[in-house]
Design a protein around this nucleic acid. Structure first.
Length: 398
RNA sequence: GGCCCCAUCGUCUAGCGGUUAGGACAUUGCCUUCUCAAGGCAAGGAUCAUGGGUUCGAAUCCCAUUGGGGUCACCA
């Protein structure tokens, strides 16, 4: 069977460097197996949509040197690849679940839900669940209320107590019990699906064979397993990847400590090749002492067996800087200058080179190459070649 | 709190029953060099979270504890 993997960004903000790592792994696995890598847009939360973020996400993926075989812009046999354009599909499958008795209509207001939740918390319940209030309603009654235009959602009817086990690609067997799971909402009152419904329907319809995603998805995996079972579908092989954190921190990568938006790394003057190389080693290791990998080399070396089990990896910015320096030194002087110029033009950076002739600049670049770790350091590293240094005579006398 | 996952130098990791626990980043020193880098060499740095087992033998297997993380939404 053809290996098909996907990455499904949400246009709710700027693309995160950690997501780029996950995308890289999915991309590499598809490429290694001569399969397809699919990009799908999960824009089912209309309240969090951020203007232009979809376009910027697509752009940064390209800028990092990755590409997709199917997805937005390029299309493909399973189009559309944007969930908001697939609404009728989710409704259709939600209805199937309704008919087969795996789901039910719920008319509870958000206010009632919060109230129920608060009461459960007050009573000291170990976890809060929907109280299945609407499960009592007869099918006829529910359908009549829906027909009358009453606001409703569709919930999955969680089996009383069933053991659910799945074999994580990286972590091995993981067991859950349905009694710990909620009758979660699959279809929202605005007719949009929640993640759980949409991801299962799409992954199946788009013929995905492997899913690699962050560890935060482990707890929702049993919900997906149940859906696959209810539909009678086979679930793609699924594995969960460690998240990234700041060095010395216990939490996920945060803006406080530096850049987290993938695009901003480019803007600071990191090379995509260096970034990718650094990302490869965050959750995977070849088992050899080789550390410098081109994308092609990574694709052929990548294997599922060598993906790490750890759940949190430090994003060592110091080492990333080192990688960038390595890649800068690997380039020819002419190429390096070309890249710097391109970078400056893209991000509107003034290199401060005045109108010096090319030969002079190249000499300066050659002199700077060994020292340069980041394009954004170019100015302070070379300014004295282009502008008269200002000398404070008073200071000299001292 | 319930459930789930994880645990080797400061950091990223190698290790999959017998190793002086290896490498890389960072740190320090030396060499090279007109400086700074880069490069080369070297050093320090890990009681393999703790406690029990299993075994002739455990970083490696099992259990418990501790610590950390994740998750419990009409967000993904």
């Amino acid at each position: 069977m053809t290996v098909r993997t996907r990455m499904a960004p949400s246009p709710t903000g700027e693309y995160h460097i950690g997501s780029m790592r996950t995308m890289l792994f999915n991309f590499a696995w598809a490429k290694k197996n001569n399969g397809q890598f699919v990009l799908r847009i999960e824009d089912t939360d209309r309240t969090r949509l951020v203007e232009g973020s979809l376009e910027r996400t697509l752009q940064v993926v390209k800028d990092f040197g990755l590409s997709w075989d199917e997805g937005p812009v390029v299309g493909g046999p399973y189009a559309p690849y944007v969930q908001s354009e697939r609404l009728s599909l989710y409704q259709e499958y939600a209805n199937k679940l309704l008919e087969s008795g795996h789901a039910y209509y719920c008319f509870c207001t958000p206010e009632r839900l919060t109230q129920v939740r608060e009461e459960q918390q007050k009573a000291g319940a170990p976890l809060t669940h929907y109280d299945k209030f609407c499960l009592k309603n007869s099918k006829e009654e529910s359908e009549a209320r829906v027909k009358a235009g009453e606001k409703h959602v569709i919930r999955y009817k969680m089996p009383a107590d069933e053991e659910i086990q799945f074999n994580d690609l990286f972590l091995g067997p993981i067991t859950f019990h349905t009694k710990d799971l909620d009758d979660y909402v699959m279809l929202k009152s605005d007719g949009f699906p929640t993640y759980h419904l949409a991801v299962v329907v799409d992954d199946h319809l788009m013929n995905m064979t492997y899913i690699m995603r962050g560890v935060e998805w482990i707890p929702s995996t049993p919900k997906h397993i149940l859906l696959y079972k209810a539909f009678g579908w086979e679930m793609p092989l699924t594995g969960h990847l460690p998240n990234l954190k700041e060095v010395g921190a216990h939490k996920k990568l945060s803006k406080r400590d530096g850049t987290v938006d993938a695009r901003l790394f480019l803007e600071e003057g990191y090379l995509p090749e260096a970034l990718l190389n650094f990302l490869m080693l965050l959750g995977w290791n070849p088992g050899t002492e080789k550390e410098i990998y081109s994308l092609e080399e990574f694709i052929s070396a990548f294997s599922l067996e060598r993906v790490h089990k750890t759940d949190l990896i430090s994003f060592d910015r110091e080492k990333l800087l080192w990688f960038n320096g390595v890649y800068i030194r690997q380039m020819s002087v002419e190429d390096l200058w070309l890249q710097i110029v391109k970078w400056a033009a893209t991000y509107g950076v003034d290199l401060g080179i005045d109108d010096r002739d090319h030969d002079y600049i190249i000499k300066v670049v050659a002199l700077t190459q060994e020292r340069l770790r980041l394009f954004s350091e170019f100015n302070e590293l070379t300014s004295y070649f282009f502008t008269e240094p200002k000398v404070d005579k008073e200071l000299l006398n001292k």
